[in-house]
Amino acid sequence: MKELKAVAALVILWGTVATAAAQEHADVNEANNPLTPKITINFQNYYIPEFIGAPGDPHANQFLLRGLIPSDLGGLPQLFRFTLPIATSPDVPSGYVTGLGDLTLMDLFILPKQDDVTFGAGPLLVLPTATDDSLGSGKWQVGAAGVVVAPQDWGLLAGLVTYQTSFAGADDREDVNLLTFQPIVNVNLSQGWYLRSSAIWNFDLENENNYIPVGLGLGKVFQLENGITMNAFIEPQYTVWHNDEGAPRWQIFAGVNFQFPIAKPAD
């Protein structure tokens, strides 16, 4: 009888630990899921210490203020996302210039789930809000974005594709024809820690200037009071392929993201 009680206790303990671990992994996946329907504020930064083939060893920095607002406008679940850069860029001959970059708006419509896979797609608009020619394209741009997210027991798989092309703006600036792909791979560890890779592949179809970076970083998810989730990370990224000069040789991507629960209306 004592042996049976001991076995039962071990089974209950194992079940409790497994349930807690599964919930922890689910929380980490939700914090990293780009389609999580929560109000989200991201403070993210790219630091580029070196460009391939650039004379004088210039560096650059881009701080990104990002936000995500879920809604059911028109009865359709969607996520409105904005990205506003504050950048420091080389500026010949004055050295460096700091200011606002171009504002990117995205409206993702969430499609019905297929098993555990979620799809989102919608229009994209870029406004030429840059305060200096070195910080933006000087062009109005329109395009589309698509996202697929597939949570796993061990982490998260996702991908974000965007395409944008210019249709108006300064006549003396180059046209824009840009395709990007961001593969996202997260491997959950324990106690909210996870490994991550999320470097963005860039394909400049206008100038045929393309490059593919690969990243490997570390992050941690914190559950704060009032249901707020904080996600902090750092991810060095190295360019493994390029077909022209001017791409970052390597860069450091870091950030802190906050997700806020949406209050449900009272019955």
Rank of each mutant, 00 (worst) to 15 (best):
A150G: 07
A150E: 05
A150D: 02
A150R: 14
P151L: 04
P151D: 04
P151T: 12
Q152Y: 01
Q152L: 01
D153W: 00
D153V: 01
D153E: 09
W154L: 09
G155D: 03
G155L: 02
G155K: 11
G155Q: 06
L156E: 07
L156P: 03
L156V: 12
L157S: 10
L157N: 13
A158N: 14
G159S: 14
G159V: 12
G159D: 06
L160A: 12
L160D: 10
V161E: 15
V161H: 14
T162F: 08
T162N: 11
Y163G: 06
Y163V: 14
Y163H: 12
Y163S: 08
Q164T: 09
Q164C: 07
T165W: 11
T165N: 12
S166V: 09
S166I: 10
S166Y: 11
F167D: 00
A168T: 02
A168C: 13
G169K: 14
A170R: 15
D171L: 13
E174A: 14
E174M: 13
E174I: 14
D175P: 00
D175L: 08
N177M: 09
N177A: 10
L178I: 13
L179G: 09
L179V: 12
T180V: 07
T180W: 08
F181P: 02
F181T: 09
F181Y: 12
F181I: 09
F181C: 06
F181E: 01
Q182R: 15
Q182T: 11
Q182A: 13
Q182F: 02
Q182H: 04
P183S: 03
P183G: 03
P183I: 11
P183L: 07
P183W: 01
I184D: 05
I184R: 03
I184Y: 02
N186E: 03
V187G: 11
V187M: 10
V187S: 12
V187T: 08
L189E: 03
L189T: 02
L189I: 03
L189A: 05
S190E: 15
S190M: 11
S190P: 10
S190I: 12
S190W: 11
Q191E: 13
G192T: 07
G192A: 05
G192N: 05
G192K: 03
W193Y: 13
W193N: 06
W193L: 07
Y194I: 00
Y194M: 02
Y194T: 05
L195Q: 05
L195G: 04
L195T: 02
R196H: 01
R196N: 07
S197K: 04
S198G: 13
S198Y: 06
A199L: 04
A199I: 07
I200N: 09
I200C: 03
W201N: 11
W201C: 00
N202D: 12
F203M: 10
F203Y: 10
F203H: 10
D204K: 15
L205T: 12
L205F: 09
E206G: 00
E206P: 04
E206Y: 01
E206M: 00
E206C: 00
E206A: 05
N207D: 05
N207A: 13
N207Y: 11
E208H: 01
E208N: 07
E208Q: 08
N210L: 06
Y211P: 09
Y211T: 13
Y211D: 05
I212L: 05
I212M: 09
P213E: 04
P213I: 04
G215T: 03
G215E: 04
G215D: 04
L216E: 08
L216N: 02
L216V: 06
L216Y: 01
G217D: 05
G217L: 04
G217W: 00
G219A: 03
G219P: 05
G219K: 07
